[in-house]
């Protein structure tokens, strides 16, 4: 328990310090020192608030997931563009009740975020492992209903999603 707290603290402090370095843009000693102190202080205040599922998570797999998500965003954006610009406006909105098999809270948050980020689908309600998704038409929600997006997300968290 002590070790996970320490690793979480160090991860938080390092990411906050990286954001400080990018946003401040000055690299003389006083600025960097102030940044380090502030990052450690904020990380010390915030570490106990985090959920405990961080250690399943691997950044490298997220870097594999991100380009795939970007590809899906481009594909569904082109689809939605075609729908909006066509004169007859062929929309068939539907509400989908989707049962998830993901356990970690962070995975559920990232999955909901990905669904909303993809044009054509938006997360309306989350209750436990039950998602309510609004989709613009049949083609745009195909990725979710076939379970492909959830399998990818389970891959990020090194877990098996039983179909």
């Amino acid at each position: 328990m002590k070790a996970t707290y320490l690793t979480q603290f160090i991860m938080n402090a390092c990411s906050l310090f990286a954001v400080w370095l990018v946003l401040s843009g000055r690299y003389d000693l006083p600025h960097v020192m102030i940044g380090g102190i502030v990052a450690c202080g904020v990380a010390w205040l915030n570490t106990r608030l985090q959920c405990s599922s961080v250690h399943h998570f691997s950044l490298g797999r997220l870097l594999i997931y991100a380009p795939w998500l970007l590809g899906r965003i481009v594909a569904s954006s082109l689809h939605i563009t075609k729908v909006i610009l066509s004169p007859s406006l062929p929309i068939a909105p539907k509400m989908i009740h989707y049962q998830m098999h993901l356990k970690p809270e962070l995975a559920i948050v990232l999955l909901g975020n990905s669904i909303t980020l993809t044009p054509g689908t938006i997360t309306v309600e989350v209750e436990g492992d039950h998602l309510l998704v609004h989709a613009l038409d049949e083609a745009s929600c195909e990725d979710l209903t076939s379970g492909r997006m959830e399998r990818r997300m389970a891959g990020v968290f090194k877990e098996e999603a039983s179909p």
């Binding site: 909105p93 044009p119 938006i122």
Partner: peptide, 29 residues
């Protein structure tokens, strides 16, 4: 171009839920 399509969708689509798709199209791509 995609921002313009999002704005057109904001004008054309019928209700709140469908309009949010236009906003997310603008915001993401």
């Amino acid at each position: 171009f995609f921002l313009t399509v999002g704005a057109i969708g904001m004008l054309r689509l019928p209700d709140v839920f469908t309009r949010s798709h236009a906003v997310s199209l603008t915001d993401s791509l």
